[in-house]
């Protein structure tokens, strides 16, 4: 077993090429996103606005106060989701795990909805903490209900049914809310990046700066954990403790995104898969940075679609990611189960 593969020269190239592709994709999509819409901004104008502050007041405001924050927020959220998905899949040793499946997203959004509907006196800065508690509770419910049962499909189903219960509670809350809360809540619950400003990004930064490096710190341990519980324990890893810690970090990553944008599904699930297929390796140290990047690319792209496809009407980005990501997830599941295993 190659537990500690040295990143060879070929491996490094295999790492750098996808990274370069992702970065250029990201730049392209971001530029397209920032320049499209009304008012339309040409590339030249955009260059001027970005670097020399030329351009009309309107253009400056639109670019700096509306479109750039939105792209940045999408990037940050996507990155955190990508990291969370990678960690979660590695920690559960289940390639189909993800925060939306394990009840974390629905728990966090339930907590946020409760704050909105019941008008709980919570400072805006504390919202992520509330979401974190909700997410932890949701995840805990799933893990507890799933104990004793083995097999990927069982775990996923239990997660989905716990999510269904949480969603039921959510509907109860929505039905109880006064009608001007409701519309807000509903768009929020679909997961949307619309109408976000720098005020939404700044509270995220400390979380990102803490949680992402912590995620990277776990990469080596997770590599060992992927060998299987017994092997990892044999190598001196406290399996249960690591798993709980990693899931905690994931929940933190997801909770802050839910607090700011609502539950955006399937990014966390798909991003690691794309990278794993591209790289053809299971080494978390290589997968994690690229999956983070891929999450960002995916979300910014999805958000571009959400904003522009039915312009000026906007469909929340969460709808798109569920629609497309759900399909991809189904394919992945069918492919993995194709061998006829009976779990």
């Amino acid at each position: 077993m190659q537990t500690e593969p040295q990143i060879s020269r070929a491996g490094r190239r295999g790492f750098l090429v996808p990274a370069a592709i992702l970065c250029s994709l990201l730049t392209g999509v971001a530029i397209f996103n920032i320049s499209s819409g009304s008012p339309e901004i040409t590339l030249q104008e955009l260059g001027g606005i970005l670097f020399q502050r030329t351009g009309t007041d309107l253009q400056n405001t639109v670019v700096w106060e509306m479109r750039i924050p939105r792209v940045l927020l999408g990037l940050l959220v996507g990155m955190m989701l990508g990291a969370a998905g990678t960690l979660m899949q590695a920690a559960m040793n289940n390639k189909l795990a993800g925060p939306e499946i394990l009840g974390v997203s629905s728990g966090a959004s339930l907590a946020m909805a409760a704050v909105t509907v019941l008008h709980l006196p919570v400072a805006v800065l504390m919202h992520p903490v509330i979401a974190l508690c909700g997410g932890l509770l949701g995840g805990l419910c799933v893990v507890l209900s799933a104990r004793g049962s083995r097999g990927a499909a069982g775990m996923l189903l239990i997660g989905m049914s716990v999510s269904a219960i949480l969603n039921g509670l959510l509907i109860v809350l929505i039905a109880l809310a006064t009608s001007n809360d409701v519309n807000l809540l509903y768009t929020y619950l679909l997961g949307s990046l619309a109408n976000r400003s720098w005020d939404h990004i700044l509270p995220m930064l400390p979380w990102t700066l803490i949680a992402l490096p912590v995620a990277f710190m776990f990469a080596r341990t997770l590599n060992l954990l992927q060998l299987g519980d017994e092997a990892a324990a044999g190598l001196g890893i406290k399996v249960l403790r690591v798993r709980v810690l990693v899931l905690g970090v994931c929940t933190g990553l997801v909770a802050i995104t839910v607090a700011q944008c609502g539950p955006i599904g399937y990014i966390a699930l798909i991003a690691p898969h794309i990278i794993r297929t591209l790289l053809g390796t299971a080494d978390i140290r290589q997968i994690l940075p690229l999956a983070v990047l891929a999450g960002g690319v995916l979300l910014v792209t999805a958000d571009t679609v959400a904003r522009l496809l039915f312009y000026p009407m906007e469909i929340p980005v969460g709808v798109w990611t569920t629609l497309l990501g759900g399909g991809v997830f189904l394919l992945l599941f069918l492919k993995r189960q194709g061998g006829g295993s009976n779990d």
């Binding site: 209900s145 004793g148 049962s149 083995r150 097999g151 069982g154 189903l157 239990i158 049914s161 716990v162 269904a164 219960i165 969603n167 039921g168 509670l169 509907i171 109860v172």
Partner: peptide, 18 residues
């Protein structure tokens, strides 16, 4: 019905899995 039925589903599921 979801609040009544989803826990029931969970129960059936656990039974089936175990």
């Amino acid at each position: 019905t979801t609040l009544l039925g989803a826990p029931f589903f969970l129960f059936l599921l656990r039974k089936s899995l175990l």
